[in-house]
Design a binder for these strands. Structure first.
Length: 262
DNA sequence: ATTCTTGTTGAATG
DNA sequence: GCATTCAACAAGAA
């Protein structure tokens, strides 16, 4: 489930498995996921190492020994597996083979993930129009952005150009915790409401990371485990409703979540 | 069998 | 130029 908390877990995974080991070779099994040519990536990665990682929004950046960055975007079904002497996993369309015999498999069931490289994260961010990370954005920038924002609140939270990292699932969670209807108009939020929403955005994302982005480890008051047909609100036991907001399936509690401050 | 799905992009529409 | 909606990508789950 690759949104900000999931990518943070992937970052920790790369940090604890794949750093400081020389890369022997790469394998690309489907060019579709490559945003730059396989040959360029091969030339840049062979005989170097991954030295450190950064996450911004839903992107994972791995700094190489040559001072460039290998970039992963996980799409909707991307994940990583670091292993030795195994049958390559299904859909492991990109593979980094290390000289110690291990391979880092980039598994992308649906081919919506991407592999890229960049000189600097700043350049990459401007190319992709990537906004401030949701865990790094200042309260002032957050409030500035939502003040005068048109459209619905959920769409604003998932706009990667302004707040990077929140996707469909965590937007629903943040709005549930903040008790806002996903279609609420940002203009309905007072300064105090925006302040509160900012705090809750942080809390939800950090709590998810602390719980390994594993929904079945989430606190009982989270809506994510109940985000399904016939789901029951963990706060008031009402039936969770499903609607479409900005083209995405959206689950919310009609009793707890409102479009205006009380 | 049909519908839905964690994401992003670009075309079509109003 | 906007905001909004939809299709496309692809594979699998419900």
């Amino acid at each position: 489930m690759p949104e900000l908390p999931d990518i943070e877990i992937f970052k920790n995974y790369v940090d604890s498995t794949s750093l400081h080991q020389e890369i022997d070779e790469i394998t690309v099994n489907d060019e579709k996921i490559m945003e730059i040519s396989t040959e360029k990536v091969r030339k840049k990665l062979k005989n170097t190492t991954l030295e450190s990682t950064e996450r911004k929004g839903k992107y994972l950046f791995c700094k190489t020994g040559k001072n460039e960055w290998l970039v992963f975007h996980f799409g909707m079904t991307g994940k990583l597996n670091y292993a030795k002497n195994i049958e390559p996993p299904k859909h492991a369309h990109f593979q980094l083979h290390f000289k110690n015999g291990y391979t880092l498999y980039f598994i992308n069931t649906r081919k919506l993930g991407r592999v890229n490289m960049t000189g600097t994260i700043a350049d990459f961010s401007s190319e992709k129009q990537l906004g401030e990370d949701a865990l790094s954005i200042s309260k002032e920038d957050f409030i500035d952005f939502l003040t005068n924002r048109k459209g619905n609140l959920k769409n604003a939270l998932t706009d990667q150009k302004n707040i990077a990292g929140i996707g469909n699932i965590y937007a629903d969670e943040i709005l549930f915790q903040a008790k806002w209807h996903p279609k609420a108009c940002p203009a309905n939020l007072s300064e105090k409401d925006l302040d509160n929403l900012y705090q809750i955005m942080h809390e939800v994302l950090q709590t998810a990371i602390d719980n390994h982005a594993e929904p079945n480890e989430f606190p009982a008051h989270f809506i994510i485990p109940h985000r399904k047909k016939k789901g029951i609100c963990p706060e008031c036991q009402s039936n969770i409703e499903r609607i479409t907001v900005s083209g995405r399936g959206t689950y919310f509690c009609p009793e707890c979540q409102h479009s205006f401050s009380d």
